[in-house]
Simulated scan of single mutants.
Amino acid sequence: MSLRNQLSDILPSLLPNNPSEAIKGTELIRLVRLQLSGNYSDASLRYHFSIMSCDPASPIAKVEKGQGYYRRSAPVPALSGAQELLSLSQGRLDDLGADSKAIDHALERVKKFRAIVRRFIELNSRFPFEFRNVFTAGSPLGNLWKFPEMVFVDWQTGEDHDEATKLESRMLSLKQRLGLPPFRLTSARLRIQASLHGYREDFFQTLSASTWTQGGELIYAAPIVDEALADGLRALNAAFGVGVSSFGIDLETLEDLPRAANILNAHPKETEALIERIHFERIAAPRHRQHIDWGALETLRRESEETASLIDWLCECIEDGRAMPYREA
């Protein structure tokens, strides 16, 4: 049996599940030798550990920061985003075996993360807009590639502002004269957990849904601890400019958090306690374009009432001279 095949059989029982308990290469070599057939050098074993950790089908993964290896988990069902849960194709729910409780549980997890992202964005003086109706039952499958879960609006007026602060009129006037939007739109795709099996689909859906805005961000709830996964995401970012970040909230922590409605309506002290549980990490920074694709935005406006609502909200802010949070009619 080849060395790689032997390692594929031996490693699952030796590697810890939790990346925080990752085992260092020297100790892993010692443990492997107790079960290994054949006389292989330390260098050969280290080489195989490194190569296998980049293979999504192998049982070994290397931690993103620090040293050590852990056991790669099995592929997770493609249920990280709200759109897979809320609609489109019943086939996307088959991974849960038509278990309604499991589906409800996964949906609640997604709602919690949406609420966390929304509160985080608001606390950082940005203005979120959520897309929901484009992902309801019966919606076209192509909506996955047209619409993000959220759009973040950053008002580019040259000064800080809050809900009651007037937009700086001279800067606003100048940008309008130059044909520049006084705001920056960033589309965001939200996912619960990244995997080597699905990160490319996550990334390119984010890219496709961001072409009409000025940039895109792929945001994961769980920390990205797999070195090969992080490197793969950075390589895509270098080529296409979509940002990638993690809120550092593991699944156990997410389960312990209150329901989405409670998160959105939390008192300041409760919100502060929630924010303390977030360990935000920027994996790769987004590259923003100067202009919005107005033609593509007009096309989406004709297809979606929500896009029309986004445009109406932005126009209302400009006409009123102040940045206001979006409120559903």
Score class of each variant (00 low, 15 high):
Leu7Met: 07
Phe183Glu: 02
Glu328Ala: 15
Thr136Asp: 14
Gly66Lys: 05
Arg46Pro: 00
Pro182Ala: 11
Ala260Arg: 05
Ile121Arg: 01
Lys24Pro: 01
His161Glu: 03
Cys317Gly: 04
Gly68Ser: 02
Gly243Glu: 07
Met52Val: 02
Lys65Ala: 12
His105Met: 11
Glu270Ser: 15
Phe203Gln: 04
Ile292Gly: 06
Ser125Asp: 13
Arg4Ser: 11
Ala222Gln: 11
Leu144Cys: 05
Ile292Ala: 06
Ala284Cys: 13
Glu27Arg: 09
Arg33Val: 02
Phe152Lys: 01
Ser20Pro: 00
Asp231Cys: 04
Ser195Asp: 10
Ile283Cys: 10
Glu168Thr: 05
Glu306Asp: 03
Gln205Glu: 15
Asp250Ser: 04
Cys317Met: 06
Gly68Arg: 03
Gly243Met: 08
Thr253Trp: 06
Tyr70Leu: 03
His267Gly: 13
Gly198Ala: 12
Glu168Asn: 14
Leu180Phe: 10
Val242Phe: 09
Thr136Val: 11
Leu190Cys: 07
Thr271Trp: 03
Arg301Asp: 11
Glu306Phe: 06
Arg277Leu: 15
Ser20Tyr: 12
Ser80His: 13
Glu328Leu: 13
Asp160Glu: 11
Asp293Lys: 04
Gly232Pro: 03
Leu96Val: 13
Lys62Trp: 00
Gly97Val: 05
Ser309Phe: 01
Pro128Ser: 03
Val63Met: 07
Ile51Gly: 00
Leu15His: 02
Glu168Gly: 00
Arg170Thr: 10
Ala238Arg: 14
Gly91Phe: 10
Asn237Ala: 12
Asn143Arg: 08
Phe183Thr: 02
Arg170Met: 11
Val110Ser: 13
Ala82Met: 11
Ser41Val: 09
Asp9Met: 10
Trp155Leu: 07
Ala285Asp: 15
Ser2Met: 09
Trp155Thr: 02
Gln35Met: 11
Lys62Asp: 01
Leu180Thr: 03
Arg109Cys: 09
Val134Ala: 09
Ile29Glu: 12
Glu227Ile: 05
Leu207Lys: 09
Arg30Leu: 10
Ile121Cys: 07
Thr299Asn: 14
Ala284Thr: 10
Leu310Ala: 07
Thr307Ile: 15
Leu196Thr: 02
Gly81Val: 00
Ala57Arg: 07
Arg132Val: 12
Glu305Cys: 06
Leu85Lys: 04
Pro77Cys: 13
Asp320Tyr: 02
Leu93Ala: 03
Trp313Gln: 07
Thr271Gln: 15
Ala209Leu: 02
Arg191Ala: 05
Ser53Lys: 01
Thr307Tyr: 00
Ile318Tyr: 02
Glu328His: 13
Asp99Pro: 08
Leu93Met: 04
Asp231Met: 06
Pro182Asn: 06
Arg92Cys: 01
Ala238Gln: 15
